[in-house]
């Protein structure tokens, strides 16, 4: 038994080395940014690989102020939560409608939604900007959330649709006999059952909307509305030669996502796996 265990351990050593090297490839870039975020420019120029000589938060304070960090965080937070709220509320109701009302047109609507998922945003962005630009409907955080509903509704409806199909009708019948309205049946009985799908959609959409760059860069024009990816982009473009500050800005941009990841790691990973299967 002991010999066998030893053998197992031995054969795992090369695998362990390969895994560790791969792990370094994935994580080391973040580590390099972190150590350089504490250094002054000269220290970075002379040796960007060494550990910082002292821990100095000047770069962070400067980056925090110049990139408008508090407002960027607030904007990202408002846009992400508002979009998520709209997507979850309206997609779940739409999916319920498409499943439970046996209209011919509902099958067509569902097919159009599914087919639309293959259209990349890049094929829509030019007319999108021209149309909503000429109606003065850009440069608003709440409208951006509505646009996210438009771009996100098809996938979310598709995922809810697959789940609602398998909910037995009996669950709803009793409530209907008791005189509940359709809306009550949906929110009191169906929506709670949808929780696992809702969690998956929430995770996928938070990662998408929080990190999205292209759509907000086209919609949000005022500086005061910039999200984290936008403010990082403009900051980096301007301060690219001030390495220490640029690295501190990147760390500030990463922190919220890392907190989110550490606090919900298992949920995020299972959410991504669930979502990818669709």
């Amino acid at each position: 038994m002991k010999a066998k265990l030893k053998e197992l351990k031995k054969s795992n050593i090369p695998l362990m080395i390969i895994s560790t090297l791969l792990f370094l490839f994935y994580i080391f870039p973040f580590f390099l940014v972190l150590i350089n975020s504490f250094k002054a420019k000269m220290e970075i120029l002379s040796n960007p690989i060494a550990l910082p000589k002292s821990i100095n938060f000047d770069n962070f304070i400067n980056a925090f102020n110049t990139m408008g960090y508090p407002s960027a965080i607030t904007n990202s937070f408002i846009i992400t939560t508002a979009s998520l709220f709209l997507i979850i509320v309206f997609s779940s109701m739409l999916a319920y409608f498409l499943v439970r009302w046996d209209w011919k047109i509902n099958k067509i609507i569902f097919m159009i939604l599914v087919a639309s998922m293959i259209i990349p945003f890049q094929a829509l962005m030019i007319p999108f900007v021209n149309i909503y630009g000429s109606f003065n409907m850009l440069n608003s955080r709440l409208l951006l959330a509505v646009y996210y509903l438009g771009f996100g509704v098809s996938l979310a409806t598709f995922m809810y649709h697959g789940f609602i199909k398998n909910i037995p009708l009996e669950l709803e019948e009793a409530a209907k006999i008791d005189g509940a309205t359709k809306l009550q049946v949906f929110w009191k009985i169906i929506f709670p059952i949808l929780k696992p799908v809702t969690a998956t959609i929430a995770i996928l959409d938070v990662l998408w909307i929080w990190n999205d760059f292209l759509l907000p860069s086209l919609v949000l024009i005022s500086k005061s509305m910039r999200t984290i990816p936008l403010s990082t982009f403009y900051f980096f473009g301007q301060y690219t030669s001030n390495y220490g500050q640029a690295m501190a800005a990147l760390i500030l941009a990463i922190i919220p996502v890392i907190i989110f990841y550490i606090s919900m790691q298992d949920k995020i990973i299972s959410g991504v796996i669930e979502g990818a299967g669709k």
């Binding site: 739409l94 829509l124 646009y147 509704v153």
Partner: peptide, 20 residues
Amino acid sequence: FAMIPLLVFFAVVGIPFIFG
């Protein structure tokens, strides 16, 4: 149940696609 999401979908994906 369906009007708002379908209207928004049409405005954001449908119209730009047709005009595109």
